[in-house]
Design a protein around this nucleic acid. Structure first.
Length: 353
DNA sequence: CATACGTGGAC
DNA sequence: TGTCCAAGTAT
């Protein structure tokens, strides 16, 4: 719960931020206009998509999802496969699996209504501390803190917090909570994020036009642009593999569904060897016995935690060739676009088709 | 708590 | 070309 606004200094800060927001708020597809009542479904859908994903990228997907599934009930009723297809290319596919699971819970167990408390929201799949706070504040105007990367940047600068992330998280959270106003909590949350996205940016910050420029301890001490500090990340190892492009005489290619958990879980793939530091005995790992051609083609792809290099081998098989196992399907080359293929797999398709 | 989990754009 | 990063969550 937010503290009461007893300090004039605090009230002034909140007022300056909200006044700035009223003039400079971004007009975003999922954002209710002033005076409109936010739709919790819209808020939820956008917040899930925006996790670690840019506003520019989300726009297209958000509109597509709303067109396909205008309500949480329609989304819940959709086959999961369709949801994964629509999500393909957005990344972090656990989000899509959880999105569908969450829609089912809300539609089938909660009467189609999202919980209006952080605690209730937090219990749903795919909703963590940030998203619970964001939905509570934005959709229900509850005085909750929504601490995302923007807010972490703004707060570490505003209070000159030099502790590196993630150790600084508790302090950032309590600092944010102490500022959340009783009224207009949703606008406050969005204002903080807009401030971080447009003024208090990672580089080339624009303190000159910041509503908090006089309040900012980081600016006063000249360390703002170096905040937040972050612990060093582990380096990305390089992995290799071989992708097997199997084309049947009728123009269909072999696709395989990935296991439900882990990397690209539940998505479709071009069959490949394991992805490891080195590739051992590729023929043994091929989806079927065939005479393989080393195409000389190669794709490279960088995941969050490793870099991948896939050489492409190909073969042609007879039109009556059956699928090697139950997770595999033949899909015509002209229909690959509508499959749930993640970007790394699209790179292979683009090379071969 | 550290790690797994995608992608595309900016510099 | 390589690195960083963008409205984080689950385990």
């Amino acid at each position: 719960m937010a503290e009461q606004g007893l300090s004039p200094r605090r009230d002034g800060k909140i007022h300056r931020l909200l006044a700035w927001y009223d003039r400079h708020r971004r007009d975003l597809p999922w954002r209710a206009r002033p005076g409109e009542t936010p739709d919790p479904y819209h808020v939820w859908l956008s917040e899930i998509m925006l996790q670690q994903t840019t506003v520019a990228t989300v726009g297209t997907y958000y509109r597509k999802f709303l067109e396909l599934w205008p309500t949480v009930e329609t989304l819940a009723a959709a086959p999961r496969e369709d949801v994964l297809k629509a999500w393909a290319g957005l990344g972090y596919y656990a989000r899509a699996r959880n999105l569908h699971a969450c829609a089912k819970v809300v539609a089938e167990e909660l009467g189609g209504r999202f919980p209006d408390s952080e605690e209730g929201l937090r219990a749903l799949p795919g909703i963590g501390p940030y998203t619970a706070g964001a939905i509570a504040a934005i959709a229900f105007d509850r005085p909750a803190a929504a601490v995302d990367g923007n807010v972490e940047r703004v707060m570490t600068r505003l209070y000159a917090i030099e502790t590196p992330l993630p150790d600084a998280k508790p302090e950032i959270r309590s600092r944010t909570l102490a500022l959340v106003p009783e009224r207009r909590a949703g606008d406050f949350a969005q204002a903080l994020m807009d401030l971080g996205a447009t003024i208090c940016t990672p580089k080339r910050l624009n303190c000159m036009i910041c509503p908090w420029t006089e309040d900012c301890a980081g600016r006063k001490s000249g360390i703002a642009d170096g905040l937040p500090r972050k612990k060093e990340k582990a380096e990305r190892p390089r992995r290799k593999g071989i992708a097997f492009w199997v084309e049947r005489q009728d123009g269909r290619v072999l696709l395989r569904e990935r296991p439900d958990k882990g990397l690209l879980g539940g998505m479709m793939e071009i069959p490949s060897t394991e992805w490891a530091a080195s590739v051992a005995r590729p023929e043994v790992q091929a989806p079927l016995d065939a005479k393989w051609t080393r195409t000389g083609k190669r794709i490279e792809h960088t995941f969050t935690h490793f870099h991948l290099e896939l050489d492409i081998w190909s073969t042609r098989v007879l039109a009556d060739t059956d699928v090697p196992d139950k997770s595999a399907r033949w899909v015509h080359k002209s229909e690959l676009d509508s499959e749930a293929l993640p970007s790394v797999m699209r790179k292979i398709v683009d090379q071969m088709r």
